[in-house]
Simulated scan of single mutants.
Amino acid sequence: MARLIFCRKYKQELEGLDLPPYPGAKGQDIFDNVSKKAWQEWMAHQTMLINEKRLNMMDMGTRVYLNEQMLKFLSGDEYDQADGYVPPPKA
């Protein structure tokens, strides 16, 4: 049976992650408060940011930037989009 949590991003009860995505307190916070749906959307958005902005994951500044964007994304705050990004039309 799926574990349900109250998702910080979507403000509703949704299926939670199977395991914490990071070790320590940050991973536990995400595990307890972020839905599987929101996490999967963040992973796709993070990949888009890395590719479109040509981010170097070996650079500490890049990792700090992505962590800041992750916190904004998962909290429902304004977050960076890839340059020229146009969201798909809603059906």
Rank of each mutant, 00 (worst) to 15 (best):
residue 40 Q to E: 14
residue 39 W to P: 05
residue 72 K to D: 08
residue 69 Q to T: 01
residue 74 L to R: 06
residue 26 K to T: 10
residue 70 M to T: 00
residue 16 G to D: 03
residue 67 N to I: 00
residue 11 K to I: 05
residue 6 F to D: 12
residue 52 E to D: 13
residue 27 G to A: 06
residue 60 M to K: 14
residue 33 N to A: 09
residue 5 I to Y: 08
residue 40 Q to A: 12
residue 80 D to L: 04
residue 25 A to Q: 14
residue 11 K to M: 11
residue 49 L to G: 05
residue 74 L to P: 06
residue 59 D to P: 01
residue 16 G to H: 02
residue 73 F to I: 03
residue 30 I to F: 02
residue 68 E to L: 11
residue 54 R to Y: 06
residue 26 K to M: 12
residue 5 I to P: 06
residue 14 L to C: 08
residue 83 D to R: 09
residue 9 K to L: 15
residue 15 E to Y: 05
residue 73 F to H: 01
residue 5 I to K: 09
residue 20 P to E: 06
residue 24 G to A: 03
residue 79 Y to P: 03
residue 85 Y to V: 00
residue 88 P to S: 10
residue 58 M to K: 15
residue 88 P to L: 10
residue 51 N to H: 10
residue 78 E to F: 01
residue 81 Q to P: 00
residue 41 E to F: 07
residue 27 G to W: 01
residue 28 Q to S: 07
residue 16 G to A: 08
residue 68 E to Q: 14
residue 72 K to A: 11
residue 43 M to K: 13
residue 71 L to T: 13
residue 21 P to Q: 05
residue 38 A to G: 04
residue 80 D to F: 01
residue 65 Y to S: 04
residue 9 K to A: 11
residue 77 D to V: 01
residue 14 L to K: 14
residue 2 A to P: 15
residue 37 K to S: 06
residue 29 D to W: 13
residue 36 K to L: 15
residue 26 K to N: 09
residue 42 W to L: 02
residue 66 L to A: 03
residue 17 L to T: 08
residue 54 R to C: 08
residue 78 E to N: 08
residue 56 N to W: 04
residue 46 Q to P: 04
residue 37 K to T: 11
residue 36 K to T: 02
residue 38 A to Q: 07
residue 68 E to G: 13
residue 73 F to L: 04
residue 44 A to M: 08
residue 73 F to V: 06
residue 66 L to Y: 06
residue 59 D to L: 10
residue 63 R to Q: 13
residue 69 Q to A: 05
residue 10 Y to N: 11
residue 11 K to H: 13
residue 11 K to A: 11
residue 44 A to D: 12
residue 30 I to R: 02
residue 51 N to I: 01
residue 16 G to W: 01
residue 88 P to V: 08
residue 90 K to P: 06
residue 79 Y to S: 02
residue 74 L to H: 06
residue 75 S to Y: 07
residue 31 F to K: 07
residue 76 G to R: 03
residue 2 A to S: 14
residue 42 W to S: 02
residue 81 Q to D: 12
residue 19 L to H: 10
residue 84 G to L: 03
residue 7 C to T: 05
residue 61 G to W: 02
residue 60 M to S: 15
residue 81 Q to W: 11
residue 80 D to I: 01
residue 89 P to C: 03
residue 47 T to G: 10
residue 24 G to H: 01
residue 7 C to Q: 06
residue 36 K to W: 09
residue 25 A to S: 15
residue 62 T to D: 01
residue 23 P to V: 07
residue 46 Q to D: 01
residue 60 M to R: 15
residue 70 M to W: 00
residue 49 L to K: 05
residue 12 Q to G: 14
residue 88 P to D: 09
residue 3 R to I: 04
